Simulated assay, not measured.
Amino acid sequence: MLLQIMEEPELPVLLVNEVGGALGVLEAHVPFLKKHFHLITMKEFLESKEYFSAKIKAIYVWWHKPVIDEELLKSLPNLKVIANSGVGMDHLDLELISGFGVKMASAPYAVSTSTADIGMALLLTAARKLVEGCQIAVSPDTEQLPINWLGDDISGATLGIIGMGSIGYKIAQRARAFEMKILYHNRNRRKEDEELIVGACYCQKIDDLLQQSDFVMLVVNLTPQTYKLIGKRELELMKPTATLINISRGPVIDQDALVEALQSGVIKGVAMDVTYPEPLPRDHPLLKLKNVIITPHLGSKTHKTAYMITEEAVENILAALWGLPMPSEVFPG
């Protein structure tokens, strides 16, 4: 790799954690990345730090790796931009990175469709009791399928969406097709014509949404303001027949309060694509409850979306290196 860099200096050098494996960029994306960059893995960088330090212009953070800390930033004097493979930036110290004069980008456009899909998938799975139904159907002990195995209709039910950005709005579009009543709470109200298109009603107070909804979907970024947004008080405002769905970040919910609410019947159930930590410890009480559905952060994990994320990252990196406006630039604060 070092020889290749010396022979072909015209492409900017991009640092990635590794190629392939559990913590690396996908091997299928490497040919596309190599059209625009010389790829350097963290292992190669650490082995030849003196040579590569001044050459690396950009970092592609794929599923939180590599870890961006002060030591790494100090070792890369010509670093211009860091592109993240998702919309959530809570794993990055934005103030620290900005302090080094490095620009940052997320991938909000790439992930919105598939994340909205997983939100509706979890809603349907919880409402129609698909996980338990599958277990009954495949169990060696099943001799007769129960005729009294009943789920809930979502048609006509009320969905409360907390966070009406691009993902939340796409959930509203899908929910409208299922003939659901849609409430939403957001920092800023949507335009009236956007509300009319999906039939959504704005709730200025989150309490009003919680009290009226049969399903509550969390679609917010993790910030100091949304940390443990849903706690004991909020859970007790919900209907005892309601289901909570989280496709944002685990710490948006107070998990201790959630366990208590699920055990005591304060709410009917929860379906989560995110937890904290990920994965949960194997003895965590949430894993022992029957009214819990957990998936392993599948929101944007489709072949098409993963490739779109990489395309969006490349577009942002190249824009930063060429001094052009970045389509998905993220600012601290």
Rank of each mutant, 00 (worst) to 15 (best):
I5T: 08
L11I: 03
V13A: 04
V13W: 00
L14S: 07
G20P: 14
G21A: 13
A22I: 10
G24C: 13
G24N: 13
E27T: 15
H29P: 09
V30K: 14
F32N: 05
F32K: 12
L33T: 05
K35C: 05
H36F: 08
E44Y: 02
F45Y: 13
F45Q: 02
L46W: 04
E50H: 06
F52T: 02
A54W: 04
K57V: 03
W63N: 13
I68P: 00
D69M: 09
D69F: 09
L72G: 07
L76G: 10
P77G: 12
K80I: 09
S85I: 04
V87K: 02
G88S: 10
V102H: 02
V111I: 15
T115C: 07
A116Y: 04
G119K: 05
A121F: 07
L123K: 00
T125S: 15
A126N: 15
A126T: 08
A127C: 11
A127G: 13
R128E: 12
L130C: 11
G133Y: 05
C134T: 06
I136G: 11
V138I: 13
D141M: 07
E143V: 09
S155V: 09
L159P: 06
S166I: 12
S166N: 11
K170F: 02
I171L: 10
F178W: 14
R190D: 02
K191P: 03
E192W: 00
G199M: 03
G199L: 03
K205S: 00
D208A: 00
Q211Y: 04
Q212N: 10
F215V: 12
M217P: 06
N221F: 12
T226H: 10
R233D: 14
A242T: 06
T243G: 01
T243Y: 00
L244R: 01
I247Q: 03
D256S: 13
A261M: 14
L262F: 07
G265V: 09
G269A: 11
V270G: 07
E278D: 12
L280W: 08
P281Y: 09
L286D: 09
I293F: 08
T295S: 15
K301M: 15
A306G: 12
A313M: 08
I317C: 03
M326Y: 04
M326H: 06
E329C: 05
G333N: 06
